[in-house]
């Protein structure tokens, strides 16, 4: 490979970096995601289960990826899902959205569309009315990243 080609490759890599990633990108990693999770849901230890996340395995366009989250719950005054949080740890800013339910919701199901900057595991946390915390994750392969993050 010629020097010039190496140089051009470097340039395009830089362009991709500055084009897609905000200043926060450099810091987002597993440790930061733990801090974000803690700020959202407190110190409760999450348990796997109860949540299903419908999300394409391969997303051609990271700018708009449809998803549906369902949490199993009777949704009564005694037992209901209070909140659902979605996180994309490898985005420049990891938070996607948080959704808040009441017993009147009937179903703890929500659909929307997310942005993913790159291939990663999407995390979901569900807070129950009795303080329990559930979690799940889904791997999504992103062909063209959503620069919005």
């Amino acid at each position: 490979m010629t020097d010039r080609r190496v140089f051009m490759l470097g340039l395009s890599a830089m362009a991709a970096w500055t084009g897609c990633a905000g200043p926060a990108a450099a810091q987002s990693g597993p440790r930061d995601i733990q801090a974000v999770v803690k700020a959202l849901v407190g110190d409760a230890t999450p348990v796997e289960g109860r949540i299903s996340l419908d999300l394409p395995e391969i997303a051609e366009n990271g700018n708009t990826i449809p998803y549906t989250v369902r949490v199993e719950s009777p949704m009564t005054d005694a037992e209901y899902v209070k909140a659902v949080h979605l996180l994309a740890p490898a985005n420049p800013h990891p938070q996607i959205g948080s959704f808040f339910f009441t017993p009147q919701s009937g179903k703890a199901t929500v659909s929307s569309r997310m942005r993913l900057a790159q291939t990663q595991d999407v995390l979901v946390f569900a807070e129950m009315s009795d303080g329990r915390l559930y979690t799940t994750k889904r791997a999504v392969k992103v062909t063209v990243g959503g620069c919005g993050g």
């Binding site: 985005n91 800013h93 990891p94 959205g97 948080s98 808040f100 919701s105 199901t109 942005r115």
Partner: peptide, 22 residues
């Protein structure tokens, strides 16, 4: 109030939200 969402940068442009209520 029957439903609330906080949206962050990871929510796509032209936000679509579907939810349920009794």
């Amino acid at each position: 109030e029957v439903f609330r969402a906080t949206l962050h940068t990871g929510t796509a442009a032209n936000p679509y939200i579907s939810f349920f209520t009794k």
